[in-house]
Amino acid sequence: MEPSHLTRRLKDLEDNIKQILALLKKYEDALHYEDDPRRQVKYNREIEQLRESANRYQQEYDQLHQQITGESTVQMHSVAIQLEEVNNRLDRLSAGQKAIYANINNLRQGLLAHYEAGEKNIISAITYQLNESQMTTISALLDAIEANKVSDAEMQNILPTIQEGLSILQQRGITLTGSQEEIVQVINAPQIDFKHRLKVAVPLIPFILDYEGELELGTGINLKQGLKQFMVRFIGE
């Protein structure tokens, strides 16, 4: 193969590696501030694709290393350093995400421990859409309910607030989670203990609060404000 062709291949390889480094920096910054589980999963899939690209570029480098000698060895050394940086960044991102996932999984298991076996499936589907902060908040609310820190009057007030919020969203054709219908059946069942119905309803609060539109009754009562006040009452934030 002609030396000029090898040099061109090396230059293309170097440019591709620089693009990966730029993308990794972008993902590092994005993941540092991102708390939406769905976006985190998307970023991680894209990072794994970058790892596959990095593996291909390493193979390309190894092939060129066997063929290029002389003046180009300086550039080869530069490319080798960049490849090493790519691999180090990928490893750091992977280790960081594993630690985050382990913490989220612990939070998820702690939250699910509040529920009976038959309900864990529908609640579990919701937890996969909650971030760390939301799961911590919901767990605190569940702890308060189970410790009888929520009075009967408060329960009688907050459950209808959640029901009203869901009803308004349903009228607008908005589905919050894949388990919403099953949860609505439980929280609307009069034969089920009121306290238990509230526990099942509580994980939906973040979804209602995240809805960008206004949720008001005909009386002008702001349902989202009522839910926020309830959360502040028991978690102090």
Rank of each mutant, 00 (worst) to 15 (best):
R45K: 04
R45I: 03
E46F: 04
I47T: 06
E48L: 09
R51S: 09
S53V: 02
N55C: 01
Y57C: 01
Q58F: 04
Q59S: 03
Y61P: 07
Y61G: 06
L64W: 09
L64Y: 03
Q66F: 09
Q66A: 09
Q67W: 11
T69S: 14
T73L: 13
Q75C: 07
V79I: 14
V79H: 10
V79W: 10
V79P: 03
L83W: 06
E85T: 11
N88Y: 07
S94T: 14
A95K: 15
G96N: 12
G96F: 11
K98V: 08
A99K: 15
N105F: 03
N106P: 01
L107S: 00
R108N: 10
Q109S: 04
L112Q: 09
E116S: 05
G118C: 03
E119F: 06
E119D: 15
E119H: 15
N121C: 02
I122C: 01
I123R: 04
A125E: 14
I126V: 12
T127K: 11
Y128I: 00
N131G: 13
N131C: 00
N131T: 02
N131W: 07
E132N: 08
E132G: 00
S133K: 14
I138G: 00
I138K: 10
S139Q: 11
L141N: 07
L142R: 07
L142Y: 03
A144P: 11
E146F: 04
K149I: 00
K149E: 06
V150Y: 03
V150H: 01
S151P: 02
S151Y: 05
A153W: 15
E154F: 04
